[in-house]
Amino acid sequence: MGLAGLLSFNSSPVKLSLGALPAATAPPGSTAAPTTTTTTKPVSGGSTPPPTTAGAPTTTTTAVPTASRSATGAMTNYSFGILSVKVTVSGTKITNISIASIDDGGNPRSAYIDQASLPLLEQQALAAQSANIQGVSGASYTTAGFEQSLQSALSKLGL
């Protein structure tokens, strides 16, 4: 696996955007209010982000349609199979993230892990923003594929 190809300097605040927004699974009326949006804009362009060093934090307030739109990211390999992520945005704000499809080849062990870890990913992202935490200790297995597919979904939406 090429190391450099995976590096993304300042180019992946996609992960932050996740946390900045009410997660799909947040209960109605929860305090996960859509209070903060990230000030950086995800760099579009799929798996090979440009080697930005400045990262160009871009305000996200202008010239973007505010209607609700959805896109499903590319099928992406993760540790135990293949998955794709569906994202819904309102303007530049992510309002919903879900697993659109997942195939672990029927491996019961990986199914167990998927059940445990995929919802966790959404919650982790929410927690990181709303509770001022920077990490989660415990099981987590599939973030890379999750985030890659999410990034690809976002770039389909021009975000």
């Binding site: 699974t25 935490i133 989660v136 200790s137």
Partner: peptide, 10 residues
């Protein structure tokens, strides 16, 4: 660092 709830891992 958040500690995962073992009974409800999300």
């Amino acid at each position: 660092i958040g500690i995962v709830d073992p009974q409800q891992t999300q």
